Simulated scan of single mutants.
Amino acid sequence: MPDIWMQGAVMVDLGDHAPCDPAFPAKAIAHITADRNASAEAPEDLVPFDNLKSFFTLGGKGMAPHLLWDPFTGAFAQFFPASSRSKSLDDRPGGTRTNRAGEVVIQIEALFFPHCRVNGRIFTRLTDTPCKGWRELNTWVRSWGVPDTWPMGPPTGFTSVRSPGVWRSQGGWYAHAHVPENNHVDPGSWPAFVPGQPSVPGGGPAVRPTFKPFPGSSFFLDGRKSPIIAAMHRRLVAEGCDRYQSSGDIEVWGAGDARSYAAWQRKLGFAGSDANGIPGRSSWDRLHVPNV
């Protein structure tokens, strides 16, 4: 099982842990702290990392993320384990429970605001910073089954684009600007995903693939229970191939899975015995099932 605490992060456990909702796919949410209102004409010094860490530990604990990340130094502070929800998203009563809507919903606050000044230099976008620690962060989030993808597109400016249907059905990275029930427009930009590198003799651990490798047709037997099947279920629904008659027991392979997978095979152009509802390597690889 992946580590619930990111290696190298300062652990500042706030307690008050609560589970996420595995009926939704795994997600990561990108924020910036946006703690100063600077401009090109009036830049301001970056707020010290320890100030923000103290804020989320004390008066701001009701809006604390999982991680505070300093992209200038690579420092991290972690306030909740990955297996718990955190609190950086607005969550309206009766809505989608934004902070919990995923097998994990890992939230990262990058210490940044536009036109911040560090050592005399002005930084307009997060991607202008050194982004130190991003490789480690991307790898850790990936280890929790969050695919390296932006279902609503990577953030390229401070604009809001939201689709509750995409949010419910697709795992991956979301900007704060993408999350239902929220009106923020951050983070404005975010670094590119780091390619996973396999382990080598004497090297570090392997980075798990973004998508689940094909487990073999014999894996899909009636009654088989696995999070892989739940992840496949969500992808079939997202692809418009929902032939399920119930939303229960999504981790168990059954007739609804076979019907839905056959619809996916037909969507890809397969027919006859090639669209019998039993996954094959070609159709599986094109489904992009998140690695869980």
Rank of each mutant, 00 (worst) to 15 (best):
P209V: 14
G59W: 00
T149F: 00
S54L: 04
R125P: 01
A40F: 09
N276A: 11
C20S: 10
L68D: 01
R243P: 08
R208C: 14
T57R: 12
T33M: 08
S283K: 03
F123I: 07
G74E: 06
Y261H: 11
G204H: 01
A271N: 12
D91M: 06
L58Y: 13
G272I: 04
S283P: 08
I228S: 14
A101S: 15
P22K: 06
P227V: 11
L268H: 07
G171S: 03
A18Y: 06
I228E: 15
P154S: 15
L14I: 04
L126Y: 11
D50T: 05
S273K: 07
N138S: 11
G133P: 02
A231F: 00
G157K: 07
F76I: 05
G223P: 04
G153W: 04
F79G: 02
P71V: 05
H178A: 10
A258S: 12
F211G: 01
K267Y: 04
G153Q: 03
S86H: 02
E109A: 08
K87T: 12
D128V: 01
V194Y: 09
G95D: 11
A77C: 12
F79R: 04
G204E: 12
I29N: 09
W69E: 09
G15C: 00
Q265L: 10
W284N: 11
R266Q: 14
P81F: 08
Q265K: 09
R286V: 08
T96S: 10
T159G: 02
A38Q: 06
D90P: 00
R224M: 15
S143T: 10
C131T: 11
Q107C: 08
G153H: 09
H176R: 08
D148V: 02
W253L: 00
F79D: 01
S226Q: 02
V141H: 11
G171F: 01
L89W: 00
G204I: 05
G120K: 14
G157E: 11
P130E: 02
N37I: 07
P205Y: 03
W190T: 04
G203C: 06
F56S: 11
I4H: 15
S246Q: 14
G202A: 05
T33L: 07
A255W: 13
P2A: 08
G188W: 05
S83L: 03
V146R: 13
F270Q: 10
N276W: 07
I106K: 13
H17I: 09
T124P: 00
W144N: 12
G188Y: 03
I32E: 01
R208T: 15
V118K: 04
L126M: 09
P151A: 04
C116R: 05
D222Q: 14
P93Y: 01
Q78P: 06
G15Y: 07
D13G: 00
P154V: 10
K61E: 15
R234A: 07
T127S: 05
V161H: 15
P155G: 11
N182L: 02
F79K: 02
T210N: 03
W284K: 08
L221W: 10
A18K: 09
L67F: 10
W167M: 05
V289I: 06
D45H: 13
M11D: 13
I229C: 12
